[in-house]
């Protein structure tokens, strides 16, 4: 009993250290006054000040946020449609292919996805003249494509767990299928849609490889800017930027959790 009692906390602490020590050190060093990343030179917020005056970083952050928001929304729309077809339409011709295709981006190496997207865009430009050149549009399309697979997985499990007689009941009461979808299905799977959107948003915000392939002049996302800066040596302002990103993501997760808790409490009360 005692051994088990000691073993668990030790492993737990080690696990957390392994996961979070790098992040903690990054946050700590973002307040480092020294220009050298590895030497502590006292507390300072000068890198944060420098960051908000850097037009390159701010521009990239704005592009990243736009790309993430638009591609997440597209991915939710497309992924939900795919999930709906796969869970509700029973066996149909080509179902196996659709299942495989919808899930393929989950396991496809990013390099391949990026490269094939690039080839597609180049070929399309040659054939139909759209998209003209590469830039934000192509990144959005590429991100929507691979994020869609994740959304489809999340939404599919929620749809499968939903009581189908809810949809039948709406139909029985005189609602046509499209109406049923928006009146009943969407509200019931709304948590999955929100979760899928957040997941897609994060994935898009994170992505470096695919964006690097399909981007063009003037459309550098935040990860691309960070990566190119780091190649010239890690500067403390990157630490500051990373800390801000962690704070924003952490705040988002906390808000989401709080919102969900509140919804659950409202459900149980009364």
């Amino acid at each position: 009993m005692t051994r088990r009692g000691l073993f668990l906390p030790v492993v737990c602490v080690l696990g957390f250290v392994f996961l979070y020590a790098p992040i903690v050190s990054l946050v700590v060093y973002s307040f480092n006054d020294s220009r050298l990343v590895t030497v502590w030179g006292g507390f300072s917020t000068r890198w944060y000040a420098q960051l908000v005056t850097d037009p390159q970083i701010l521009g990239a952050a704005w592009i990243s946020l736009q790309v993430a928001a638009i591609s997440a929304s597209l991915a939710v729309a497309l992924g939900t449609l795919a999930a709906y077809v796969l869970t509700r339409f029973g066996p149909f011709r080509g179902r196996a292919i659709l299942t495989g295709m919808a899930a393929a981006p989950l396991v496809m190496p990013e390099v391949i996805t990026g490269l094939s997207m690039l080839l597609l865009f180049v070929a399309m430009e040659g054939l139909v003249g759209w998209p003209a050149g590469r830039g934000m549009t192509t990144i959005i399309i590429a991100h929507a494509t691979f994020c869609m697979a994740y959304v489809a997985v999340v939404v599919q499990s929620r749809l499968a767990g939903m009581d189908e007689s809810l949809e039948e009941a709406a139909m029985d009461l005189g609602a046509r299928p499209v109406r049923v979808f928006f009146d009943v299905t969407v509200p019931v799977i709304a948590p999955a849609l929100v979760a899928g959107w957040l997941l897609a948003f994060t994935l898009s915000l994170d992505d470096l490889v695919i964006a690097s392939f399909v981007t063009g002049p003037g459309a550098s996302t935040l990860p691309m800017v960070i990566f190119s800066k780091v190649r010239l040596g890690v500067s403390p302002d990157i630490n500051a930027l990373a800390t801000i990103i962690i704070a924003v993501v952490g705040l988002g997760v906390a808000l989401g959790t709080w919102q969900m808790r509140r919804a659950m409490r409202g459900r149980k009360a009364g």
């Binding site: 007689s165 809810l166 039948e168 009941a169 139909m171 009461l173 609602a175 046509r176 009146d183 019931v188």
Partner: peptide, 20 residues
């Protein structure tokens, strides 16, 4: 005739009340 055009209504075993 599809269910939404039939003069019937159904009470489901699970009741299927719209939770929202």
């Amino acid at each position: 005739v599809p269910p939404y055009e039939r003069p019937t209504n159904m009470m489901f075993q699970s009741y299927a009340l719209f939770p929202h």
